[in-house]
């Protein structure tokens, strides 16, 4: 089920998956705001030109048009970069999609500092916090291109608002075709009993590398891919707290309002254990995506350090 060596960008899943779903008979339509090549939604437009709508550089209109299409019965996908969607049109997302609970799927690429060379303005470190503040949205951060395709399909097949965050760089492909993404389920990538490391997106493969590193020190590390942030697999989180006694969360996102906040809230109300939070704490800068992970201390070594810390704080 788990493979390595192959790389792909998670954003590459959008166009091909929409084409497949449309061929399977789903009434999907796509709206894009002048970034269709980057988001890969333009690939869908090539195959289904009548169902692909471009609105120019106008994200507020992008959201309103998608909401209107959904109100007319379409499964409406809207795509852009995460700094623009929801960053440039948060009120439109709140009013036109979230409050009425319309069937719109936002697929936002270029999440996190791994966006790279474009620098701070293009690196969304706050999108998950914004989207999780809207009660009707389901929020998914897939770990690789295989999981992204399946998350897009799950969004298309489940009524209501979805936010799916994808990334710009080519990153290791973790899953093979036998993998099945389940909405609201964490995926156990590595069993372990001493500590749990849970991660999202590009940080999942970094968490796996940390677990490998810790195994060399005799630390048995459970690794959970928490792609489905909402609904969150509270059962898996509480089992991790009960069975491993300590949790480290890892995300390429501001440490407030994302994975760490969700997991700590879940743990605090039922099964408090020592926790540590790996994420970004300031706006980004230009650089290559892997250089930036090191620059912002989002590395296997950092995760290992945090793991040792929470294990030391375990009582008994």
């Amino acid at each position: 089920m788990v493979q390595a060596a192959k790389t792909a960008a998670t954003r590459e899943a959008l166009g091909p998956t929409l084409v497949r779903l449309a061929r399977e008979g789903l009434d999907v339509v796509a709206v894009d705001a002048d970034l269709g090549v980057s988001t890969t939604a333009a690939g869908f437009g090539k195959e289904f030109p009548d169902r692909f709508i471009t609105v120019g550089v106008a994200e507020q209109n992008l959201v309103g048009v998608a909401a209107g299409l959904a109100a007319a019965g379409k499964i409406a996908f809207a795509s852009s970069f995460a700094v623009f969607l929801p960053g440039h049109c948060f009120d439109q997302v709140r009013m036109a999609i979230a409050q009425p609970g319309l069937n719109v799927k936002l697929v936002a690429s270029h999440g996190g500092v791994v966006t790279g060379e474009d620098g701070a303005s293009a690196q969304a470190i706050e999108d998950l916090s914004l989207m999780l503040s809207l009660p009707t949205f389901r929020v998914i951060v897939p770990a690789d291109v295989v999981e992204t395709a399946q998350a897009i399909e799950a969004a298309a097949r489940n009524y209501g608002p979805f936010y799916i965050r994808t990334g710009r760089p080519k990153v290791p492909v973790i899953y093979d075709d036998s993998y099945r993404f389940e909405l609201g389920k964490a995926h156990l990538l590595r069993p372990g009993s001493d500590v749990t490391v849970t991660a999202i997106g590009v940080m999942v493969h970094v968490a796996l590398a940390a677990a490998e590193l810790l195994a060399g020190e005799g630390i048995d590390c459970r690794v959970l891919n928490m792609a489905s942030l909402r609904p969150l697999d509270e059962e898996a989180v509480l089992a991790a707290a009960a069975e491993t006694g300590a949790i480290v969360t890892v995300e390429d996102h501001y440490v407030h309002g994302g994975l760490g906040s969700l997991v700590s809230q879940t743990v605090a109300k039922a099964q408090p254990v020592p926790m540590a939070f790996v994420g970004t704490e300031r706006f980004g800068t230009s650089g290559k995506w892997d250089e930036l992970l090191r620059h912002f201390d989002l590395t296997p070594e950092r995760i290992a350090r945090e793991v040792r810390g929470v294990i030391a704080r375990k009582s008994g």
Partner: peptide, 15 residues
């Protein structure tokens, strides 16, 4: 927000 939403409805009707 209304004209964008209306445009979406109008485009869906056309499709």
């Amino acid at each position: 927000m209304g004209l964008s939403f209306s445009l979406g409805l109008a485009l869906a009707a056309r499709m």
